[in-house]
């Protein structure tokens, strides 16, 4: 167990070194789109609108936090691994080191988790300044789980990708629909039943629900939390099995 964690840290360490040299640029570029969403939807479109008794801006901020965590985690873990595997080819070096597959998956996800937490916390700070969003321990826990879940998803995509193009395809087929339909910008409550059911297959929906409930002081949707957890565990397990079968 100690060895697994230590080896995961070693894998993480290299990506941390890289992040250290460009974290400011990373923060600024990753905050651009959530801030634009906030301006366009929060202030522009949503001014004067109320949803379920709260102003639209209060409604949309926790959603954008979930969205931001998703994108930063997925890309933070997935893009680097994709480059490591297909372009630098240095992922082979990890595979030839005496460390377990578990450590490789965990280590390669942690950079996504960190990046996700960095950007979403920075956005949260903006949110706190302009709204009465509440942060609670459960809020923090959900955010952490969101980052892990989407980091594992990023690692999985990168392990399956056969080219850089594959990563982009994955992004536009999976992440883009979640961005616009994942419960960030509007409430799913009044949608027709069949559509609601389909949308609930998206992990982001559950993450937004949990974060929003905590931020607005409503009762916590434990079922959604468990679904998000199940997604995270599933992505992780599939990563492991893909890695174990990957040697051709």
């Amino acid at each position: 167990m100690v060895k697994i964690l230590k080896d995961s840290y070693s894998v993480w360490w290299a990506d941390l070194r890289i992040l250290k040299s460009l974290w400011q640029r990373f923060l600024i570029t990753s905050l651009t789109s959530p801030v634009l969403y906030l301006l366009a939807f929060g202030f522009g479109l949503g001014r004067g609108i109320e949803i379920g008794g709260v102003s639209y801006i209060e409604f949309v901020i926790p959603g954008i936090i979930a969205l931001t965590a998703m994108n930063a985690s997925f890309n933070g873990a997935g893009m680097k691994l994709n480059v490591d595997r297909l372009f630098y080819k240095c992922f082979d070096e990890l595979l030839m080191s005496p460390i377990s597959s578990l450590s490789i998956i965990l280590g390669k996800s942690l950079i996504g988790v960190l990046r996700g937490l960095m950007v979403s916390s920075a956005f949260l700070a903006i949110g706190l300044a302009i709204s009465s969003t509440r942060i609670t321990p459960l809020f923090g826990l959900t955010l952490l789980l969101t980052c892990f879940t989407f980091s594992f998803m990023g690692v999985l995509a990168a392990l399956l990708a056969k080219s850089h193009q594959d990563m982009a395809t994955f992004s536009s087929l999976i992440l883009t629909p979640m961005t616009f339909l994942g419960g960030t910008f509007f409430s799913l409550r009044d949608l027709p039943g069949w559509l609601k059911m389909i949308l609930h297959l998206m992990p982001l929906v559950h993450s937004s629900r949990c974060l929003r409930a905590e931020a607005l002081g409503r009762s916590f949707p434990w079922a959604s939390f468990l679904v998000l957890l199940a997604f995270g565990i599933a992505f992780f397990l599939v990563c492991l099995s893909v890695l174990k079968r990957s040697s051709v």
Binding site: A14, R17, I18, D84, Y88, K89, C90, D92, E93
Partner: peptide, 9 residues
Amino acid sequence: QHLSLDREL
């Protein structure tokens, strides 16, 4: 045979 180095490090 091929370079296998992380060029950002």
